[in-house]
C-alpha cells in the first residue's frame, strides 16, 4: 500500500497516462481535453480533498482563463507564453476575491455562496457582451506557434498541453507534500485545532483558492486554444458542475485520482453522448451510485482492490501488519 500512495509513483502514473493516451485515442481533441480537465480537476481537488472546501465555482476560473486566451490572442496578438502567465495571474486574483468572500461562511453556506458566485460571473460575462462576445463567445482563437515550433496541428498541440500538464502536475504534487500542503490537510481534519495551534486558517484557505484558481484558469486558456473558441459555456454553472463531479468520481485523496476522474468522465461522455443525447440522465444515476456505494471514488476502488490482492497473495504475518496501515490511510477521508 505504501507504493500506491507515494507521490513519485503518482507522477509516474501521470506521465505514463500522457504517453499512452495518443496510443489508444484517435481524437487529439479528446486526449488534450483529458489532460486539460485533469489540471482543472486536480485544482478542484486541492480545495476539496486537501483543504476540505467544496467549491461550486471552479467554472468561474476556467471561464476567466478561456476569455483571457480569447481576448488577448484575437484582439491584441499577445505572445502565448505571456497570455498564459496573465491568465494564471488573473485566475489567482479572482479566486482570491471569490475565496475571501465565500469563506466568510462555512459548510453548506460556503457551497451555496460558491454556486451563487458562479452565477454572478456567468451573468457578468453574459451582460458585457462587448468584451466576451455574449452568447456567441469569442471565435477563431488560434493555437500557438512559439519560437518556430508550430503547435497548430492537433497532435502537436497535444504535446504542448502535455508538457505544461506534467510541469504543473509536478508542482502541485510538491505543493501537497510541502509544509503548506500539510497545513491545508490539518485544516481539513480539524479547523478549530489548526486555528488554536496558531495557523492563520483564513489566509491558508485563500492561498489554496489562489493556487486552485490559477491552475484552473490555465486549463481554461489551454482549452480555448484547443477548441478555437472561448464560449460562454466555459463560465457556465455546468462547467463548475462537471469539474466537481470528475473530482468526486476520481476520488479526493490524491492528485492522480483527479486525472483518473477527468479521463473516465471524458471517455464516458465521448462514448455515451454519441449513443444517446440524453446521457446526462445516466450521469445522474452514476452520481447517486457513487455516493451510495463508492464514496472514495475510483481511486478508493483501486486501493481496495490492491489491498485485497496483496492480502490474498501473501498469506504471511506481513499481511496482518499491512491491514491497519491501510485503514489509517482511509480513516482520514471516510
Amino acid at each position: 500500500m505504501k507504493t500506491i500512495n507515494n507521490p513519485i509513483f503518482h507522477f509516474f502514473l501521470a506521465a505514463l497516462t500522457v504517453v499512452c493516451l495518443p496510443l489508444f485515442l484517435r481524437s487529439g481533441v479528446l486526449a488534450s481535453e483529458i489532460l486539460i480537465f485533469g489540471l482543472a480537476v486536480a485544482a478542484c481537488n486541492l480545495l476539496l480533498g486537501f483543504t476540505g472546501l467544496l467549491s461550486f465555482g471552479q467554472g468561474i476560473f476556467f471561464g476567466v482563463g478561456s476569455y483571457v486566451a480569447g481576448i488577448l490572442l484575437t484582439r491584441y496578438q499577445i505572445p502565448v507564453p505571456l497570455m498564459l502567465l496573465l491568465s494564471v495571474v488573473l485566475g489567482a486574483l479572482i479566486a482570491v476575491a471569490v475565496g475571501w468572500l465565500s469563506i466568510r461562511r462555512q459548510g453548506v453556506y460556503f457551497v451555496m455562496l460558491t454556486l451563487a458566485f458562479s452565477q454572478f460571473f456567468f451573468f457578468l460575462a453574459y451582460s458585457f457582451s462587448g468584451l466576451t462576445g455574449g452568447d456567441n463567445g469569442i471565435l477563431d482563437v488560434p493555437r500557438p506557434v512559439i519560437a518556430g515550433f508550430d503547435f497548430t496541428n492537433l497532435w502537436s498541440y497535444y504535446w504542448f498541453v502535455a508538457v505544461i500538464f506534467l510541469a504543473v502536475f509536478a508542482l502541485m504534487l510538491r505543493t501537497t507534500q510541502s509544509t503548506f500542503g500539510r497545513t491545508l490537510s490539518a485544516i481539513r481534519e480539524n479547523e478549530a485545532r489548526a486555528s488554536a495551534v496558531g495557523f492563520p486558517v483564513r489566509a491558508f484557505k485563500i492561498a489554496a483558492f489562489a493556487i486552485s484558481g490559477a491552475v484552473t484558469a490555465l486549463a481554461g486558456a489551454l482549452h480555448a486554444m484547443l477548441i478555437g473558441v472561448a464560449p460562454l459555456s466555459s463560465i457556465e454553472y455546468h462547467t463548475s458542475e462537471i469539474i466537481l463531479i470528475m473530482t468526486i468520481i476520481g476520488g479526493s485523496g490524491n492528485l492522480f485520482a483527479s486525472l483518473l476522474g477527468a479521463g473516465t468522465y471524458m471517455l464516458l461522455a465521448d462514448v455515451l453522448s454519441t449513443i444517446w443525447p440524453r446521457w446526462l440522465l445516466l450521469l445522474g444515476v452514476a452520481l447517486i451510485v457513487v455516493a451510495l456505494f463508492m464514496q472514495r471514488g475510483l481511486w478508493g476502488l483501486i486501493e481496495t482492490l490492491v489491498s485485497h490482492i496483496t492480502a490474498t497473495s501473501k498469506r504471511t504475518p506481513n499481511a496482518a501488519t499491512e491491514r491497519p496501515l491501510h485503514r489509517q490511510a482511509d480513516g482520514g477521508k471516510a
Binding site: G284, V285, Q295
Partner: peptide, 22 residues
C-alpha cells in the same frame, strides 16, 4: 444518505436534479 458528509448530499441531489431535468 443523511448520515454521510454533506459532499454526498450534494452529489446525490445534483444527480437527482440531472435525472429530473433530462
Amino acid at each position: 444518505i443523511y448520515k454521510l458528509p454533506h459532499t454526498f448530499h450534494i452529489l446525490v441531489t445534483v444527480g437527482l436534479a440531472l435525472i429530473i431535468q433530462e
